[in-house]
C-alpha cells in the first residue's frame, strides 16, 4: 500500500479511536489514556524530522478540534513530542536495527526495544500535556503521579494496538 494512504488511514483511525473510545474510558477518575500518538511512534525512522513535526502538529490539532478541550494544547504537545522523538530514537534503538532496512518503522523492531521507546515517547507527551492543561505547579507530586500512571496505561494500550496490527500485517504478507 502507498505510504501516504497508509498513514492517512492510521491518522483518521487513531483520532476517531481516541475521541470515541479512549476519551470515554474512565475506570479511575484521574487517568486519561492518550493512544493517538501511536502514529508518531510508527512513522518511518528515516522520515525527515520537519515532516514528522508537521504531521504531529496536524494530529494534535485534529484531536484538539474534535475533543473540544483547550484548543492548541494537544498541537503544542505533539510538536514537542516530535522533536523529542529524534533523541529518543537515538537513545533507545540500536543503529543497526533501524539502518538495516531503508523504510524501517517501529512496527519492525524488537519487542523489548519497542516498549522502552514507546514508554519514553508517551511519557514525554503526557508530561507536557498534563502540565499544559493545568498551567500551574500546584500539587506537583500528584500531577507527576497522574502523569506516570497514565503513561503506563497508555503504553499498555499502544502495545495492544501494535499486537493487533502486527498480526494482521504478517498474515497479509504470507
Amino acid at each position: 500500500m502507498n505510504d501516504f494512504v497508509k498513514y492517512s488511514l492510521w491518522f483518521v483511525f487513531l483520532v476517531l479511536l481516541q475521541e470515541f473510545v479512549f476519551n470515554n474510558i474512565q475506570f479511575i477518575h484521574f487517568l486519561s489514556p492518550y493512544i493517538y500518538i501511536f502514529l508518531i511512534l510508527i512513522l518511518p525512522f528515516n522520515m525527515h524530522s520537519s515532516l514528522v513535526m508537521l504531521i504531529a502538529f496536524g494530529l494534535g490539532l485534529s484531536v484538539d478540534v474534535i475533543s473540544g478541550g483547550i484548543l492548541g494544547a494537544h498541537a503544542a504537545t505533539c510538536t514537542a513530542t516530535a522533536l523529542f522523538r529524534n533523541f529518543i530514537i537515538k537513545a533507545t534503538i540500536p543503529r543497526a536495527e533501524y539502518e538495516s532496512i531503508s523504510t524501517s518503522t517501529a512496527m519492525q523492531i524488537k519487542w523489548r526495544t519497542f516498549v522502552v521507546y514507546a514508554f519514553l515517547l508517551v511519557f514525554s507527551h503526557h508530561f507536557i500535556l498534563f502540565l499544559l492543561e493545568i498551567l500551574s505547579f500546584e500539587n506537583v507530586i500528584f500531577t507527576l503521579l497522574r502523569i506516570l500512571i497514565s503513561s503506563i496505561i497508555s503504553t499498555v494500550f499502544i502495545i495492544l494496538i501494535k499486537l493487533l496490527f502486527n498480526r494482521t500485517t504478517k498474515r497479509s504478507i504470507t
Binding site: M53, F57, I70, L71, A76, T79, A80
Partner: peptide, 28 residues
C-alpha cells in the same frame, strides 16, 4: 527543524490563549 518547531509552537500558543474566540466559530 528548529525554526519549524518554533513556528508551530507559537501557533499552538496563540490558539491556546485565544481559545474563547474559537469556541464561538461556526466550525466549532
Amino acid at each position: 527543524t528548529i525554526i519549524l518547531f518554533v513556528i508551530l509552537e507559537s501557533v499552538s500558543c496563540v490558539l491556546i490563549f485565544n481559545n474563547s474566540s474559537y469556541q464561538k466559530t461556526q466550525f466549532a
